[in-house]
């Protein structure tokens, strides 16, 4: 920012200087016209002096402008390199968390399966592991997308896939009760989606619902609306809703007044949906819950 302001000030100063030089030359030309009328040789000498001055001052201006532009470009590239390096470092540290997280989950699940599932401490350990996993996935996916990462779009039977995710949430013993609106599997719509991106989206929605619910267990309802060109999945919770500027929801680092998040989840959901050729819309009123509408592109059926 400081560099940009300095650049503008310098540019302005150079333009003022150039304007002054041009004005001075105009005065000189006027004087020359008067001298020509009296003495031709004196006018020629004066004209050469003026030409030399124009070359030197114009050249100086060009050199200064070029130098400043190169400096600005160098500063910009250095800034870009630093940003990329810090993103790569952050992503690498986050990536390194995956292995210890795997170990923690594996040990906790082993304890639960060994008969300690009734122990609330194990349950809390698994819950916190899940929350940490969501944070890690969120950070890595964001770094990947900002770095130009691509998605792998494949046709997906969204109804069946959601059924499996809901069953997974139940099997984990989550504090979230999800009701999936019954769909006729014969008419199950096929959408274009990247399965892993979709998993990140669902895990973020589950995490948001649990975080903003007024009571536990929390409740959410998923409905699928099938239209000729698109398929919309609505994920609605019964939490405390959102009281700020709803239009800013989904902006990077934008947080609600009482939100404990970093303002990344909704941005990531919308970015992923747009990369899949769809979109995400957010609707909320204070006390009336929060609804996320995921709009998917329909996949073509084979002939």
């Amino acid at each position: 920012m400081l560099v940009a302001v300095l650049w503008l000030l310098l540019l302005f100063a150079l333009l003022l200087w150039w304007g002054w030089v041009v004005h001075r030359q105009a005065v000189k030309i006027e004087e020359l016209q008067q001298i020509v009328a009296q003495d031709t040789s004196a006018a020629h000498e004066q004209w050469q002096v003026t030409q030399r001055m124009l070359v030197w001052e114009g050249g100086t201006l060009l050199v200064l402008l070029t130098g400043l532009s190169v400096a600005l470009l160098w500063l910009y590239l250095r800034d870009q390199r630093r940003t990329r390096a810090s993103q790569a470092f952050f992503a690498s540290v986050t990536h390194e968390l995956r292995t210890p997280l795997t170990s923690i989950r594996l040990q906790a699940e082993s304890l639960a399966d060994a008969g300690s599932s009734a122990n609330p401490l194990i349950h809390r350990l698994l819950e916190d592991t899940s929350r940490l996993e969501v944070q890690v996935e969120r950070t890595l996916e964001l770094a990947r997308l900002e770095g130009g990462g691509v998605l792998d779009l494949q046709p997906l039977p969204i109804g069946q896939w959601l059924e499996r995710q809901v069953a997974g949430v139940k099997a984990e013993g989550s504090q979230l009760n999800v009701e999936l609106q019954a769909t006729d599997q014969r008419d199950a719509p096929m959408v274009l989606a990247d399965r892993n991106a979709l998993k990140v989206i669902v895990r973020n929605l589950v995490e948001n619902t649990l975080r903003h619910s007024q009571t536990l267990p929390a409740h959410a309802r998923i409905a699928i609306e099938s239209e000729p060109a698109a398929v919309t999945v609505s994920f609605a919770d019964q939490g405390r809703g959102f009281s700020g500027d709803a239009l800013r929801l989904g902006t990077l680092f934008f947080r609600g007044e009482r939100s404990q998040g970093a303002g990344v989840g909704l941005y990531l959901i919308r970015t992923l949906m747009r990369r899949m050729g769809g979109d995400a819309e957010y609707n909320s009123r204070p006390g009336a819950g929060f609804e996320t509408r995921l709009i998917f592109r329909r996949a073509e059926e084979p002939t």
Partner: peptide, 29 residues
């Protein structure tokens, strides 16, 4: 593996892998 980008998955499956599971995972899965 902890390497979960689409490129990594494609590379693994093109090598003839039956499946590609990204860490962390659920043991039952």
């Amino acid at each position: 593996t902890a390497f979960g980008t689409p490129d990594d998955r494609v590379r693994g499956l093109e090598l003839g892998a039956e499946d590609y599971i990204v860490k962390p995972f659920h043991y039952k899965e």
